[in-house]
Amino acid sequence: MDQATEWRTCEPVIAGGALHVMRCGDGAPVLILHHDIGTLDRTPFYDALSRQFDVVVPHHPGHGRSERPEWMRSVRDMAVVYRWLLGTLGLERVSLVGLGFGGWIAAEMATMAPSLLDRLVLVGPMGIKPPDGHILDQALYNHLEYTRAGFHDQAAYDRVFGAEPPTDLVVEWEICREMNFRVAWKPYMYSQTLPHLLGSVTAPSLVVWGDDDRVVPQSATGPWLENLPDATLEFVENAGHFVDLEQPDALARLVTGFLVG
């Protein structure tokens, strides 16, 4: 294992709850915010970015090894917790990479302190009501069905999670799901106010979509592009919603190019 992929962890207490934070690499700081199904400890996408950047990957409050804050009621609360985390880590100005649900959190953070944002990358972000279609409602699907729906190629799912993911992992997905419900139950997985606030984001933004995303309809690209002042749109081929898990190299190239550009 080369030095660049030596991951370390810390557990700062933010707003009364311990956050599990993974970190690796040197360079400009990049905060990656994971999906609504939690995150694996290591992924090829995280590793790829850590070769050029100081990559910080926290487990969301109530997901994985981070404590569940009983008081938390909204994704905006999560965004404030992450702003607090950045202060605790001494990271003033960062780039944000938000994956799916994490994209919603990243966008909320971007609106809170636009001047502290270097670049914003949103990959299949939730958070805005798609003008056509609905965000796939995990409440109506079992965990295996929902996660599989996030892949264009089912062989990629098998590769990442195993054809029959272990029950421990499915229980983790359930715990994530409960936290998702606590903060994003109604309206489901979007904010009615976020689109009106995105105009404050001055940093260049990259919006990325898997060309076969069945979780967040592609129609949502419209409002993101209309409301973010400086945004470009890219598609990744042969990718579902979990672009980072299905096409990690293609996404890493795209994101790296944008962050250093």
Binding site: A139, H143, T167, V170, V171, E174, I175, R177, E178, N180, F181, R182
Partner: peptide, 14 residues
């Protein structure tokens, strides 16, 4: 649905 059942029964319901 997630959160509805007792945490003691979580694994069984999953």
């Amino acid at each position: 649905p997630a959160g509805y059942s007792s945490p003691n029964n979580r694994r069984a319901f999953v």
